[in-house]
């Protein structure tokens, strides 16, 4: 228990956002390098960017506000279906659809969040799960509009800024999603370092004490939920735009679980967990699931067990511990 909290504490230490740490440039350099050293893998990289954005939105809830949800895909899926349906109905500008999809997810987040956040514990978990299953079933049954189980076909988008078409090699998609991820990340970095971000940590740590400080907890948590919904919706829109397809999977409980595992693998509550957890997870999945899905489940389960028992702070916490151990050795 104390071990877990200590690693959590290390991850929550405030970073002075005006000071950029050297390590913070790493993911972006890595992404750009990847483009040059691994041509032909743009679509996979694009998928990774989209999932990182999705995981970031979950980090705001799980890592900062302490809201555990098992239905985060509901918002990702809303964004994806919103973008896809707009496209099918003739609105194909990527920026416009992305903005509208973000708003749609925020609206769904506002309604479900306003209801869900009145409860806590098991009821909250169940409501998040029920909301996700509900939206999944609606999309599944509304075949005339959504294509049901077959997915939404015929999704196309016009060139980005009217100049860059979404090409077969996926270059536009690569830079577009990387750019959106970068902007969204900057915004989130500001958010979690603001007084608002700190008050979320306070609620996570001890909501009773926050209330005794005069904090309107429900409102604060709902605000965080709507913001996270919006970002999840944006990620969903990117998914629809970069793959030109919306599968029913985007609303599934399985995706909700997967994204939670990715985040925890990287480490929640520090914004950087998503950047480590998602690529590691997706790479592992790519390597292991190909041979045999059973194999992949086993690895996934074993990994998750190891994380819960031995490294609740995820890979980022492990890396931090390793770094400080090395520093300590060097100093001696």
């Amino acid at each position: 228990m104390s071990h877990q909290s200590a690693t959590l504490a290390a991850a929550t230490r405030p970073a002075d956002p005006t000071k950029l740490r050297a390590l913070e440039v790493l993911p972006w350099v890595a992404a750009l390098t990847f483009y040059f050293v691994a041509p032909g893998y743009e679509p996979l990289a694009t998928q990774v960017f989209v999932m990182i954005l999705f995981a970031l939105s979950l980090d705001l809830l799980v890592g900062f506000a302490g809201i555990v949800t098992l239905g985060h895909a509901a918002l990702f899926g809303t964004g994806a279906y919103a973008a896809g349906l707009l496209s099918v109905n003739g609105i194909t500008d990527p920026i416009v659809t992305a903005v509208l999809a973000t708003l749609a997810a925020a609206a769904v987040g506002l309604v479900t969040g306003a209801l869900m956040l009145r409860t806590k514990g098991l009821a909250l978990l169940m409501l998040s799960l029920a909301a996700c299953f509900l939206l999944y079933e609606v999309a599944n049954q509304a075949t005339p509009w959504t294509g049901g189980d077959d997915g939404l076909q015929g999704v196309t988008f016009s060139p980005l800024f009217g100049i860059f078409p979404f090409d077969f090699r996926g270059q536009t998609a690569f830079f577009y999603s990387l750019g959106v991820l970068f902007l969204a990340f900057l915004a989130m970095r500001r958010l979690v370092n603001s007084p608002f971000g700190w008050s979320l940590r306070g609620i996570r740590e001890n909501d009773g004490r926050m209330r005794a400080l005069g904090c309107p907890i429900y409102l604060r948590r709902l605000t965080a939920y709507v913001l996270a919904s919006a970002i999840a919706g944006l990620a969903g829109a990117l998914q629809a735009q970069t793959t030109q397809f919306v599968a029913l999977h985007v609303l599934s409980f399985q995706l909700s679980g997967d994204i939670l595992i990715m985040l925890i693998l990287g480490g929640a509550g520090g914004l950087y967990g998503a950047f480590i957890g998602v690529p590691v997870y997706m790479l592992a999945q790519d390597l292991l699931a190909k041979q045999d899905p059973a194999n992949w489940y086993l690895w996934q389960g074993a990994m998750l067990l190891a994380i819960t028992f031995f490294a609740p702070g995820g890979l980022t916490a492990l890396a931090q511990q390793a770094l400080s151990a090395i520093k300590g050795k060097l100093r001696r």
Partner: peptide, 18 residues
């Protein structure tokens, strides 16, 4: 709650694989 959720999902995955 989060650790319990993750542990039990892990148990499901391992059982499903076996």
């Amino acid at each position: 709650e989060l650790r319990q959720v993750l542990f039990s999902i892990a148990l499901c995955l391992v059982a499903m694989a076996i």
